[in-house]
Amino acid sequence: MTKHRIYTTSFASVYPLYVAKAEKKGRTKEEVDQIISWLTGYDRAGLQSRLDEQTDFETFFALAPKLNPLRASIKGVVCGVRVEDIAEPIMREIRYLDKLIDELARGKALDKILRKS
């Protein structure tokens, strides 16, 4: 089975698009970083290291320090597909991140995005 093209795409090439999408809607790069940290466990230095190394998406998630167990509570549709129905683990992680960035851009409160009670 051939890997989807996004797996070999550099995370650093998509990261600015996440930030631009958030900033276009009045949100900040720091909020994007906070979402990435919540989802993956990367601290600021770890995230910057992955960006500097041009790490691909598959490796970015494979090397994530601690994937948040609450990420399973992320529900909804991204690109016409329900994230909770995605069977392939890496694609599901990518879509979780996409969904969280979408929620940020739509103005949802950060506490709700990060599934805080």
Rank of each mutant, 00 (worst) to 15 (best):
Y15D: 09
P16N: 08
L17E: 10
L17C: 08
L17R: 11
L17K: 12
V19L: 07
V19Y: 04
V19Q: 08
V19N: 07
A20M: 12
A20D: 14
K21W: 04
A22N: 03
G26F: 09
G26P: 09
G26Y: 11
G26Q: 10
R27V: 06
R27C: 10
E30M: 09
E31R: 06
V32N: 05
V32I: 06
Q34C: 11
Q34D: 09
Q34G: 03
I35S: 01
I36W: 02
I36F: 06
S37K: 13
S37R: 13
W38H: 08
L39N: 05
L39F: 11
L39M: 15
T40P: 11
T40C: 12
Y42L: 10
Y42S: 05
Y42G: 05
A45T: 13
A45D: 15
G46A: 10
L47K: 08
S49G: 04
S49V: 09
S49F: 13
R50C: 14
R50T: 10
L51S: 11
D52K: 13
Q54H: 14
Q54Y: 08
Q54W: 13
T55R: 08
T55P: 06
F57H: 14
E58A: 15
E58V: 02
T59S: 14
F60W: 06
F60L: 06
F60C: 04
A62N: 15
A62H: 15
L63A: 13
L63P: 00
P65R: 07
K66C: 05
K66P: 03
N68I: 08
N68M: 07
P69Y: 04
R71C: 12
A72E: 15
S73A: 14
S73H: 12
I74N: 03
K75R: 15
G76S: 10
G76Q: 07
G76K: 03
V77M: 04
V78S: 05
C79I: 03
C79S: 13
C79P: 00
C79E: 12
V81F: 05
V81Q: 13
R82Y: 02
V83L: 03
E84S: 07
E84W: 01
D85V: 00
D85K: 06
D85A: 08
I86D: 03
I86T: 06
A87H: 12
E88V: 04
E88L: 07
P89R: 03
P89M: 03
P89F: 07
I90D: 10
M91R: 09
M91T: 13
E93C: 09
E93H: 11
E93V: 00
R95K: 12
R95V: 01
R95W: 02
Y96N: 12
Y96F: 15
Y96S: 02
Y96W: 13
Y96K: 01
L97F: 04
D98V: 00
D98R: 00
K99Y: 00
L100V: 02
I101E: 01
I101N: 00
D102N: 09
D102S: 04
E103I: 00
E103A: 11
E103H: 04
L104D: 01
L104F: 02
A105D: 04
A105Y: 02
R106K: 14
G107H: 10
G107V: 06
G107F: 08
G107L: 06
K108L: 11
K108T: 13
A109W: 01
A109F: 05
